[in-house]
Design a protein around this nucleic acid. Sequence first.
DNA 1: CTCCCCTCTGCGGTTACATCA
DNA 2: TGTGATGTAACCGCAGAGGGG
Length: 400
Amino acid sequence: MELRLSLGEASISKQYGMAKKSREVKSNGNGNKKFSLGFCMGLGIGASSNVVEQEQEKSTRKDVVEDEDQSDDESTEDDEDDDNDATAENGNTNNTASNPNPIQQLDLLPLAPVPRSNPFPNWPPPNSDHHDSSVHLSLPSTTRGFDFDVNRLPTVTAAAEERETEEGRVMSSSSPTNSVASSFQMDFCMFRSSSAANGGNNNNKKRSSDDSAAMDGERASSRASDEDDNGLTRKKLRLSKEQSAFLEESFKEHNTLNPKQKLALAKQLNLRPRQVEVWFQNRRARTKLKQTEVDCEYLKRCCETLTEENRRLHKELQELRALKTTSSNPFFMQLPATTLTMCPSCERVATTTTSSTAPPTDTSSASAVASSPFSLSTRPRYYPFSHTQPHPHPHRSAAS
DNA sequence: CTCCCCTCTGCGGTTACATCA
DNA sequence: TGTGATGTAACCGCAGAGGGG
């Protein structure tokens, strides 16, 4: 089987001209090799076996069940309803559990199109304004305003299957990057490997609680895409505005997610938990980057202000020296030492009279920096720089 | 208790793709 | 229509925490 797979991968990689990283076959930690069955469908030719379809559906169900084990408010009736819906949609009444060794059916894969069930029975949501994905499959994804939401797993109804069968020709002849089939199949790959990974985990490490088992499954599912988009072009999946807005709102509340939150969010948005996880990771990264930019800008302003202050001080010093050399006042030298300071905010020079015996104040010392209004502790926080919190003006108090 | 292994998670960096000017 | 810039989803590798044997 591995040989068959590697051949398939090679063909795909060759066909797509990809520099594929060697992650096609991995150990699942139990010494067994696991691989993506679904990748064979990535040829864009279409799957050929009902058995394969059943396997996909079965693994999908497993994912869904495990996901819903994670959520407290889910009942198993929903699962059954989903199963029924999927079966009804598919028109496939075969007993999927009756196949003892479905993996052996792999060699039937890459030929004729086959009816596909909906891997996510509740996908798309009933009130979704997204159209049946099968309608959009015939459209090139590069078209502007193309409405096919690649984030949603395709729902292929029996009525749409014929159309899709015809469109398979278009898909297979189109460029891989434009092929809707690629994302289509990537999703199948993930479901497939999810179940495989779950099995591996269960064999490898026995867990007593359903929770932990589900966690393993979820995590495996999360990372599954890392392993199983073998040879397929990574499809860019744009989140819808609604999804982004919802995620954004959620991020405002908490910028990290615990597994339950992640699953709930994924379920609510009809995304995979992995997508939610990645979105939050990227969102945190963006926040950090923004903060870095703000800090950078802030330090730049600090630098500019200090440069200006330095320039003024030099100018002031020159004036004082000129005054000193031109002054014939005998009391000039007996005046107490004066330290000039400038408020970086209002840019006014203030004088501080010190004892003539005291050492001159070093305005560039660390203490001066630490007391500077530009200390890092007061740097702005990812919002526009403002002076809403004016710093105390030492020279004002000294002057008063 | 300590060590080792495994899993999970977050992060930094990067890649790949979609979109726009 | 082609192209570079930009935004971002997805990926990779690593580190650290935590649990179990």
